[in-house]
Every structure is written in structure tokens, then in C-alpha cells.
């Protein structure tokens, strides 16, 4: 029984991993100014292709069917429900990072949506000045100074790094779904979670698919977002600016361009 519960919650966590495909970095011009560590790129590319195929042939068709047969209100409620269930993992990491205010906000958000929002079906917290946040144990380790290690693309889970691997079992154990003992309920929630992921993450995954070079786009986006979360959702624009280089020397003559700025 415990094994099956573990499997089902792993599936749900994996689906949420797919969700971060369009997020999360260290490539040349990110705010951390570090260089990407991707020694397993060849293998990662294969797994990336597998994950994208999984989306094309499973998640997307299922999401389309789901959208066709359900009203928007229903889909929003389902999305809220699954999002709310991730919050114990989120606020636990807030506190581990010493971000007490954010932790209290996220804890309050979870309580408000669970109690007033009927198990999370309604996102009442957003109307109570309790904005949503993202967090993970990989981010916590980053805040503690643990190096990211090699970039990884995990089957089903999507972009990750060596540093984020310990977060997988912690996320499973902190999910309320792990503590559901009724097999029918477990299977139902898992199936609905897969459908919901296909629906809610379609925009992000399409963004990756429509990029010039999806693998590098996804890697850069994931790493950037990871660094952004580690810095407490703050950006250092000055660091980005440093990469802009000389103001005029390398530029083409503006007069040769069809949209040249008008002369004062």
C-alpha cells in the first residue's frame, strides 16, 4: 500500500516537474553571471526529447479533450486544488531559507484556501493580500550555499540539477496526497493531476516548443528562474547591464536601419 502511494504521489510530483519546463538557470547572460554546467548534455537532450514527446502524444491530447468537455470554472477549481496541495512544501522551504514573512504568508495562504476555499478549490487567499510564491528544496540548498552541480533533465520531471534531487522525496512526503489511504481516491487524484498538468502548463510548454532551440531555451529559462528564486525573487539588473558591453562601438550605424531613432 505504501509503495503504491509513493508511486502515485511521485507521478503527481513528476507532473509538477514537467510544469517547470519553462522555468528556472546559469547560461552566459543570466543575473548570476555563471556559466552553465551541463556535462551530461548528450543524455539530457535525449531525455528532453522524450519528455516533449510525452507532452505531444499524451498530455496535450488529454488537455485538449479536458478543455472541450469541462467549463472554465471547473478547470480553475481543479487547478487551484492541486496548486494548494503544493503549499506545505512551499512554506516549509520558506522557513528553511529563513524567509519568515514569506513562510507565514504561504502558510496563511494554505490555511485560507484549504478552510475557506473548500479544500483549495477556490483561491480566496489571493483576494486577502496573500500572493502566491514558488519554492523548492533545491532552492533551499542554493540559499544555504550548496553548489548547483550538473544540469539534469529527468524523465517526466523535466529540468533539474544534482542539487535539486534530494527535494524529490521531500516533496512527496510533504504532499497531502501521500497521506490519503483510499486506493480509489489515490488513483482518481493522480489521474486528475495528470490531466490538470497538461491543461495548466500548456502555455509554458508551447513557449518552449515554439522557441528557436527548445533544449537551450528550456535550460536557460530553468536556470534563470532557479537563481531568481534563490535570490528571493529579486533581480540584479546591474549585473545584466554589465554584460551589455560598449554603448556605441559595436553597434551598426543607426542610419542604416529602417527603424533608426529620430535625431533630436
Amino acid at each position: 500500500m505504501r509503495g503504491m502511494r509513493l508511486f502515485l504521489v511521485l507521478v503527481l510530483v513528476s507532473m509538477q516537474g514537467c510544469a517547470t519546463m519553462g522555468h528556472g538557470s546559469k547560461s552566459g547572460l543570466n543575473s548570476s553571471n555563471e556559466t552553465v554546467s551541463d556535462p551530461l548534455e548528450s543524455m539530457n537532450q535525449k531525455v528532453f526529447s522524450f519528455n516533449m514527446g510525452l507532452y505531444d502524444y499524451v498530455l496535450e491530447p488529454v488537455a485538449k479533450g479536458y478543455e472541450a468537455v469541462t467549463p472554465q470554472t471547473f478547470r480553475t477549481g481543479v487547478a487551484n486544488f492541486f496548486n494548494n496541495a503544493t503549499y506545505p512544501y512551499v512554506f516549509m522551504n520558506d522557513f528553511l531559507q529563513g524567509r519568515t514573512d514569506q513562510g507565514l504568508t504561504d502558510f496563511s495562504r494554505f490555511l485560507a484556501n484549504t478552510v475557506i476555499g473548500i479544500g483549495g478549490l477556490f483561491d480566496v487567499a489571493s483576494h486577502m493580500q496573500l500572493p502566491p510564491h514558488q519554492n523548492s528544496f533545491g532552492v533551499t540548498l542554493g540559499v544555504w550555499g550548496v553548489p548547483q552541480g550538473a544540469y539534469l533533465v529527468l524523465p517526466f520531471l523535466g529540468p533539474a540539477s544534482v542539487r535539486s534531487l534530494p527535494g524529490i522525496p521531500i516533496e512527496i512526503l510533504s504532499s497531502p496526497f501521500y497521506y490519503i489511504t483510499n486506493p480509489t481516491a489515490q488513483w482518481s487524484i493522480t489521474a486528475m493531476g495528470i490531466v490538470n498538468t497538461g491543461y495548466t502548463k500548456r502555455g509554458e510548454i508551447q513557449l518552449v516548443k515554439q522557441s528557436l532551440f527548445p533544449y537551450y531555451f528550456a535550460r536557460s529559462a530553468w536556470e534563470q528562474h532557479e537563481q531568481y528564486l534563490i535570490r528571493g525573487s529579486k533581480l540584479n539588473h546591474r549585473r545584466i547591464l554589465e554584460k551589455l558591453g560598449p554603448d556605441e562601438e559595436d553597434m551598426p550605424e543607426k542610419e542604416t536601419l529602417p527603424f533608426a531613432a529620430p535625431k533630436p
Partner: peptide, 15 residues
């Protein structure tokens, strides 16, 4: 920069 992800960085990675 959208939600912490720099468009310039994405372009640089791809280009």
C-alpha cells in the same frame, strides 16, 4: 525580464 527570466539571456543561449 519576465518572472526572473531574461529575454536577452534566452536569446543569447539560443543564438
Amino acid at each position: 525580464v519576465a518572472d526572473g527570466v531574461s529575454d536577452l539571456a534566452l536569446k543569447q543561449a539560443e543564438f
